[in-house]
Amino acid sequence: MVTSIHQLDDGAWVSVNDSREVNVSDLWQLACSDVCDCEPTDFLAEGFVEVSVARGRVKARIAGQCIGCGADGITDWLELGRADPETGAFRSVVPSSVHCPGSHRRLAADE
């Protein structure tokens, strides 16, 4: 099935197949981010700016800021999770694991 994604309510959340799956207010641990030099960037998601999906992988660019140093910015494409191509069920990554925006690499295991 085709995965349907929407970013709604002023970018407050991302809908995957018409189910609200990822919210603002989570803290994302980001390695190699452009937002700041902190390692890792302790990134508060304040708004989803863009969303995309390819082969079930749901990605977003997120506006927010590092709560360690205060730098704000928009991340490169960050994987939010995967939608099962058969059932459409969404499996989210764990924001508090370490992620690398713009890369397919994940530096810590998903749930």
Binding site: D9, A12, W13, N23, V24, S25, L44
Partner: peptide, 10 residues
């Protein structure tokens, strides 16, 4: 706030 609202952080 977060009692009901999607946007709120706190």
């Amino acid at each position: 706030g977060t009692e009901y609202c999607s946007l709120s952080i706190v």
